[in-house]
Design a protein around this nucleic acid. Structure first.
Length: 664
RNA sequence: GCCGGCGUAGCUCAGUGGUAGAGCAGCUGAUUCGUAAUCAGCAGGUCGGUGGUUCAAUCCCACUCGCCGGCUCCA
């Protein structure tokens, strides 16, 4: 007879159902129908098809698109539908893998030629037909051997290769009425569940991500339950494009890259250099405050130094070729550490000297393969905000903790408050014993715990000389960027024979910490540009204020006002051209200058300036000196948001126009 | 480095086997204006580079450099 099992819903209620009921039926009893919302079920916490048959007591919860699991299922099914469309149109294309990814999905095909944009259009049209047909996704299980034969028959060599790598005896496949694809699942109940889908790009990708393998044709796409959400996503992509630091860097005259200089080599234009100077000033000021000593080191050194450090052995593929000078080999530096080590070695050290903290904005050069270069984010010459700390073993954990807190403070000052933290362990190519690595990794984890920082482990991603903590920041669009890194190094002190005289009078070996807070100034600047869409906070803005004369009559006053501000250390310009002020305002807005000071006859008479804030906010008129003091305060406080114009409205300062929000 | 796409004026982009156009920017002049574009005139390009096909190449082909999207790698 049919026996009964008990279902437990998320709200804790229990429901007896007959054994063999599907997860979908169980949810339907709870009023959670297989509507457009519920696309799968969590059975005992595991995502399963709605058609999954419940054979024992279980907790059952609905999976919707809003949940991470829901997005995965939805996009995974989308990928399968795309695969069917591709197979329909290009029967000789072979299936490989097609997973969901963060914001969509892709599917890799082995095909004789790349897919063109026209192909994508055709595929998309076919996808619509498959969706309209609304065929169910049906799970079938088969033995490994049968599966291999099954896919072999269909010419799916890659699928066979995959199955051969599986440990399980049984494999599952999904039949969507037109395509049977090897797949773990789960899937949405039917192809009609996918409502808004769009193919984005096609690109080459290596089989199993290994460049020695054949190149496959990857198609990227994304899908959403509604067209509205899809459109919002596409709109977001447009926004990201608008913020692209390469575009803004050019438009705002911040940086330039030039063929004749070479790829991956950055020219900092005056405005970009001004922002950089603010960053560096802040950096130096804070390092001195936090107990660091500033040092400088050369850009090249004898190759032997890099042999000692292990770079020639472990880092060669990232280094420029050595150069010969008077019969000796010299190497352009890919890192700063050997120099700081030599600074340590410049005299005898005592335990009383430690910890020593040497910091340098050190410019390094690394050979990067041409295809990986990307604006400011990935370059061949860049400046690290580098430091090397030398300490006794007992100080290690505390020093790492201090570095972490310092890092969070610095990142916060630039407006980054969300982080992801990773601990990277021993890579395949590494110096030093397993024990030493384990010890160093433990110290990093202990420091993170003492700072109460949650983290995850990145297995095998450490640098060759030691494990590291990487901090990824989230920008305003929610994208993650790797900047900060803290690396423990037991190996270089060994290689260079570093010592200090201990309390006992005998020599001991110090431990070294490598760290960068912003990572590289170039990348960090690129991130800042995109984070702020070029509209920097006042303290960073290349031009903080611009005086706009309404007519030629106010030229002298405008010039004097600008001079007064400049004398007080404000970065100010004066626009005295015989243009209409609307035009000047427009240009100042496009240059993303935080404050526009309009001066006409009224202001000349009263000694005031009419303040327009970036973004179209009229902050009212005030005495030039009042503005000067307010701006100085805002800049000195490194405020992230403008304050002038926020104060309670005073008589005579009624903002006569307040519209758009700050920052476009 | 690999796969694909692209490279025309400072910028954004049209265009064609018969040696090139627009808008903006620039320059000159006029205009003197109250919060996102005043008007007119002028000037500006060996069509990324090299070689080839052709009577003729910016256009077709090959190579090369660079950029863009991915892969791989990374601060």
């Amino acid at each position: 007879m049919i026996s009964s099992i008990t279902i437990i819903y998320p709200d804790g209620t229990r429901q007896p159902v007959s054994k063999g009921s599907t997860a979908g039926e169980a949810l339907a009893l709870k009023g959670l129908r297989r509507s457009d919302e519920v696309i799968a079920a969590l059975v005992n916490g595991k995502p399963m098809d709605l058609a999954y048959r419940l054979e024992a007591d279980a907790t059952v919860a609905p999976v919707t698109f809003d949940m991470p699991e829901g997005k995965e299922v939805y996009r995974h099914s989308s990928a399968h539908i795309m695969a069917q469309a591709v197979k329909d149109l290009f029967p000789t294309a072979q299936l490989t893998i097609g997973p969901p990814i963060e914001e969509g999905f892709y599917y890799d095909f082995a095909y004789e030629r790349p897919f063109t944009p026209e192909d994508l259009e055709k595929i998309e049209a076919r996808i619509q037909e498959i969706i309209s047909a609304d065929r169910p996704f049906r799970r079938t299980e088969m033995s490994r051997q049968h599966a291999i034969e099954f896919f072999k028959e269909r010419g799916e060599d890659y699928k066979c290769e995959m199955i051969q790598g599986f440990a399980e005896d049984m494999v599952s496949a999904y039949d969507q009425g037109g395509l049977i694809d090897l797949c773990r699942g789960p899937h949405v109940p039917s192809t009609g569940c996918i409502h808004a889908i769009k193919l984005l790009t096609s690109a080459g990708a290596y089989w199993r991500g290994d460049e020695r393998n054949p190149m496959l044709q990857r198609i990227y796409g994304t899908s959403f339950p509604t067209k509205k959400e899809l459109d919002a996503y596409l709109h977001k992509l447009e926004e990201i494009k608008k913020r692209d630091h390469r575009k803004l860097g050019k438009e705002l005259e911040l940086i330039s890259v030039n063929d004749e200089v070479g790829p991956g080599l950055i020219l900092w234009l005056p405005k970009g250099a001004t922002v950089r100077l603010q960053i560096e000033n802040f950096w130096r000021e804070q390092h001195l405050k936090h107990g660091y000593e500033l040092v400088y080191s050369p850009h090249v050194a004898r190759l032997d130094l890099w042999k000692t450090s292990g770079h020639t052995e472990y880092y060669r593929e990232n280094m420029f070729a050595p150069m010969q000078v008077e019969g000796m080999d010299y190497q352009l530096k890919p890192m700063n550490c050997p120099f700081h080590i030599m600074i340590y070695k410049s005299r005898l050290r005592s335990y009383r000297d430690l910890p020593l903290r040497y910091a340098e904005l050190g410019t390094v050069y690394r050979y990067e393969r041409s295809g990986v270069l990307h604006g400011l984010m990935r370059v061949r010459g860049f400046t690290q905000d580098d430091a090397h700390l030398f300490c006794v073993p007992e100080q290690l954990e505390a020093e790492v903790a201090k570095v972490l807190n310092f890092t969070f403070f610095v990142l916060k000052t630039f407006g980054f408050t969300e982080y992801q933290v990773y601990v990277s362990t021993r890579p395949a190519k590494a110096v030093g014993s397993e024990e030493v690595w384990a010890q160093a990794t433990a110290a990093l984890e202990a420091a993170l715990k003492s700072c109460d920082v949650p983290y995850s482990i990145d297995e095998g991603e450490g640098v060759f000389y030691g494990p590291k903590i990487d901090i990824k920041i989230k920008d305003v669009l929610g994208r993650s960027w790797q900047c900060s890194t803290v690396q423990v190094d037991f190996n270089n002190p060994e290689r260079f024979g570093l010592e200090y005289a201990g309390e006992d009078g005998h020599p001991h070996r110090p431990i070294m910490i490598h760290r960068a807070l912003m990572g590289s100034i170039e990348r960090f600047f690129g991130i800042l540009i995109e984070h702020y869409a070029g509209a920097f906070p006042t303290w960073l803005a290349p031009v903080q204020a611009i005086v706009i004369a309404i007519t030629d009559k106010q030229k002298d006053y405008a010039q004097a006002a600008a001079r007064r501000l400049a004398d007080a250390g404000i970065r100010v310009e004066a626009d005295l051209r015989s243009e209409k002020m609307g035009f000047k305002v427009r240009e100042a807005e496009r240059a993303k200058i935080p404050y526009m000071l309009v001066v006409g006859d009224r202001e000349v008479e009263t000694g005031e300036v009419s303040v327009r804030r970036r973004g179209g906010i009229n902050a009212g008129s005030r005495l030039l000196d009042t503005f000067l003091e307010q701006l100085k305060q805002e800049a000195a406080g490194r405020d992230l948001h403008p304050s002038i114009g926020n104060e309670p409205v005073l008589k005579g300062e009624v903002p006569n126009r307040s519209s758009k929000a700050e920052g476009e």
